[in-house]
Nucleic acid binder design. Structure first.
Length: 214
DNA sequence: CGGCTGATCGTG
DNA sequence: ACGATCAGCCGA
């Protein structure tokens, strides 16, 4: 398959809303133990820095955890949520300006990626099955919801693309293993906007239309 | 399909 | 103590 051009610093060195909208249709690429996975981004959210009540950096909370968001545009920010799932962001803007884009969902870019995603999701599910002393699922016998909801959520995206704490604070402009390339053409009319998910504590910021999806 | 709940742990 | 969540289960 043809390798598309990867996105450079200038792409990410813009505000978080522009980067979020522009990321739709682009391809997230990650080398995993099962091979290289490619996912077309279909849903993202903007987190606009220290003045954004929905952001981990709200009020200037620059801590060990949020540090990657303060790094230059194109830096990954992966954190653990609810003690068991990872969420993946890409920092926007420049050093010291902690805007970021949360990657909420992807669809497999090709058949091989779909195969790898399913397998990775299956492995994750089976770890829980094991703990419950239940039969592991197989490709033939697994919940139908797996294929239907392969990577349509921030946690599922990370499971399907093997994104973990080990992938935190990576410069995705330079890394050979973790980056974003050009993908499919997206017309402005294809981009929808809605409220961000899961930030009810963010008061008025919870109503901003900073979630973008195809 | 919509609503509810338990799981599980790093961070501040 | 608290999440930028998910799967499973329930009822409609």
């Amino acid at each position: 398959m043809s390798e598309k051009r990867r996105l450079g610093r200038e792409f990410f060195a813009r505000d978080g809303i522009t980067v979020a909208r522009e990321l739709l249709g682009k391809t997230l690429v990650h080398r995993t133990p099962l091979g290289t996975v490619r996912g077309i981004l279909t849903e993202v959210e903007s987190y606009m820095g220290e003045t954004d009540k929905g952001s981990h950096t709200y009020g200037g909370r620059r801590t060990a955890r949020t540090e990657p968001m303060y790094h230059q545009g194109g830096t990954s920010y992966v954190y653990l949520i609810y003690g068991m799932y990872s969420c993946m962001n890409i920092a926007a803007m420049t050093e010291g300006n902690p805007q970021a884009v949360l990657l909420r969902s992807v669809m497999p870019a090709d058949r091989e990626s779909g195969r790898i995603m399913l397998q990775l999701r299956l492995e994750e599910l089976n770890r829980k099955q094991l703990k419950r002393e239940k039969e592991p699922y197989t490709l033939e016998h697994c919940p139908a919801s797996l294929k239907k909801h392969l990577a349509d959520g921030p946690g599922k995206l990370c499971m399907a693309m093997h994104i973990t704490a080990a992938d935190n604070d990576i410069d995705m402009v330079e890394s050979p293993d973790f980056y974003v390339t050009e993908g499919m053409e997206v017309k402005p009319s294809q981009i929808h906007a809605g409220k961000r998910i899961g930030i009810d504590y963010a008061e008025e910021a919870a109503d901003y239309l900073w979630r973008f999806y195809l």
